[in-house]
Amino acid sequence: MPRLNVIVASTRPGRVGRRIGDWFTAAALRHGGFDDVRLVDLAEVGLPFHDEPHHPSEGNYLHRHTREWSETTAAADAFVLVMPEYNYGFSAPLKNAIDYLYHEWRHKPVGFVSYGMTSGGLRAVQMIKQVVTTLNMVPVNEAVAVFLRQALDSGGELRPDPGRDDAAELMLDQLARLTVALAPLRVAA
């Protein structure tokens, strides 16, 4: 079975993204559609703003952090982006992490677990779809939107939510099917 990388896109101190990423990673492990589920936290990856002199499509990476990011990304068959919405858009660290690479993203499905105050991050998801499709990634239709005002308790922890769990299950079903369907394209590439 394929590998899923769950990428936590916020690097901001005090962020809730890691808690949401941990919740989703546990949901993906329970789902069983991927035998290898890895949480990849961009705050831990620590990529500087794009500092490679060569275009990513060349795959000529001079820096160790880029080579490690390339290996982590290339090893995955599918992705879920756990992403906040900042000013109606996605985070700069997420765009930076995407822009470091090119071939490593191709022909892989991507799902979205977004979060925010008023839209649950859905506006940011719409914006990033333009980016991922340019890299020949395939976004799944099902998504998880976390509305923080309702989702967090007074201590900042995620409240249990059967609706959120159901949305994750639907997205993972679709992501798993698409991962298998796109496998021949990844092999050919």
Score class of each variant (00 low, 15 high):
A75W: 06
P84L: 01
E104L: 10
L62K: 06
S119Y: 13
L42E: 06
P56Y: 03
G59H: 00
L81A: 10
I128P: 06
V80I: 01
G59C: 07
L47Y: 05
Y115I: 07
T72A: 13
G121K: 07
Y86G: 00
P84D: 05
Y115F: 14
Y115N: 08
T73A: 03
D99V: 05
V140E: 02
L47P: 01
M117T: 14
E71I: 04
A97C: 03
Q130D: 12
Q126Y: 12
R64D: 15
V140R: 10
Y102K: 11
G121R: 11
T134D: 15
L47N: 06
I128H: 06
G121P: 03
V113C: 09
R123S: 13
Y102W: 13
T66W: 00
V110L: 10
G59M: 04
S70Q: 15
A78I: 08
S70C: 11
L47W: 05
D77Y: 01
Y115K: 05
G89R: 12
L47I: 09
N141D: 13
E44L: 11
L135C: 01
Y102L: 14
L101Y: 10
S70T: 04
V113S: 08
H55C: 10
A78F: 00
A78K: 02
V131D: 03
P93G: 08
N87A: 06
A124N: 11
Q130G: 15
P93S: 09
P48G: 08
Q130E: 11
M83A: 12
A43C: 04
G111A: 02
E68H: 07
P84E: 05
M83K: 03
